[in-house]
Design a protein around this nucleic acid. Sequence first.
RNA 1: GGCGCGGUGGCCGAGUGGCUAGGCAGAGGUCUGCAAAACCUCGUACACCGGUUCGACUCCGGUCCGCGCCUCCA
Length: 466
Amino acid sequence: MALQLYNTLTRRQEEFQPADGETVRVYSCGPTVYNYVHIGNLRTFAFQDVLRRYLRECGWKLDHVMNITDVDDKIIRNAAAAGQTIFDYTAQYRKAFLEDCDTLRLERPERITPATEYIPQMVDLIGKMRDRGHTYESEGSTYFRIASFPDYGKLSRIDTHGMKAGARVDQDEYEKDDARDFALWKAAREGEPAWDSPFGRGRPGWHIECSAMAMASLGPTLDIHTGGVDLTFPHHENEIAQSEAATGKPFVRFWVHAEHLLVDGQKMSKSLGNFYTLRDLLEKGYQPEAIRFLLVSTPHRKQLNFTFDGLQGAAAAIERLRNFARRVENPYPDGRNQDVKRLADEAVEAFHAGMNDDLNTAQALAAAFDFIREVNTKIDAGKFRDGNSADAWRVLDLFDSIFDVLRSDKEGKVAEEEIERLIAQRLQARRNKDFALADQIRDQLKADGVVLEDYTGGTRWHYADG
RNA sequence: GGCGCGGUGGCCGAGUGGCUAGGCAGAGGUCUGCAAAACCUCGUACACCGGUUCGACUCCGGUCCGCGCCUCCA
């Protein structure tokens, strides 16, 4: 079975293949760096990470581009308020964003493109639209004329005729022929950053950067374009209009949107006091892996209800996975139990089936947990053999290639040699039936963040995760 | 107001016209020197009201509630 993805453009789930059969060209709308990203933003980026990883699991190469918006109204306003240039102002948040991504183990896209480094490409693209008659100028700014692009609205399926100037559409102080038109190039204003262009001195409109960077990096037609659902309209609709008006070619084959994250069933907002950045959660003591797990275990097309109970549950689930990973490393009799091998085969297949179904991570996860329970039962029954470790790891490696939560970054206070020495000492005490000493050693290690677990034939240890 | 999505057991969250999703939490049990881990069992889930059907949580209609977009927004 092949990967199926829900395509917003067709409103259907379709089988995905890269156009060239080899490399998947993906563009993702990245952050606007005027602040720290919040966990809602990170849900979308975490989804993009899962998409990346699974595309690779499907055997394709990746050319993934993500933009960083480092010039826009909010940035200009905030930078001015902070008395900084937009470059200095955005640099700090850009750095913080990349750090947050690292913390959550989000892979870096092959290319990250800051908008201000692609001004010439944007200017070039606007020029193409102008040559084809899709633009007009008004008071020094250049606009896209929606009436010149009959396909407008095909992505969002919004009836744009209902959008009349007045109500809430024309918030701009710029003059437009039609309320639905949008700015490609905004005329320079006092105290704002500006670049020279054939359309006069000014700065790019919001939508143009994505079209320009995507096509400059990946060509006129992308395989996949991702972003949060809220970007569907008008941002992505406008991207289509700009790109296709300029090239005459389809801009994107698959539009894939990530649903929003809610906190306690409500939209995150500062006024409700349920607004969290990654840094907020880390300060409260939650593990990055648990946050990643929680963000990724709800399929991307469902709203994700973020709760602290859920976060604790995620930590416990990871603990179960790690316990299992440790357990299969214990020594077992030689041989290979064919039942366990078969369970692994089935688990791998079920995991793929879940992921192939529009990246249904919840189902893939269930496949992994089913496997763990079944194999634990085999181990308890003494039916697990040394050769089955590799079977278990086939499933765990597949699981972790997507979820990436098994490894802990946490460092222990007690050195490994010391732990091994104490375990040996404790073993001697247990042989002497000196359980008081044995328990004392275990308690002391536990206080130092090291957990001991006895099993038939030995003792294994790990650093406490919590 | 227009368009769209959703309401599943204490919590999160899959899925299906008749067959145990899964995780977390809780209760009981097994194992263990004791723990931990693990396994087993349990609480008898599908917002409400009609309809279709041999049979609906799953399909249709309506009601209530929540959420999103329509305006900067992941």
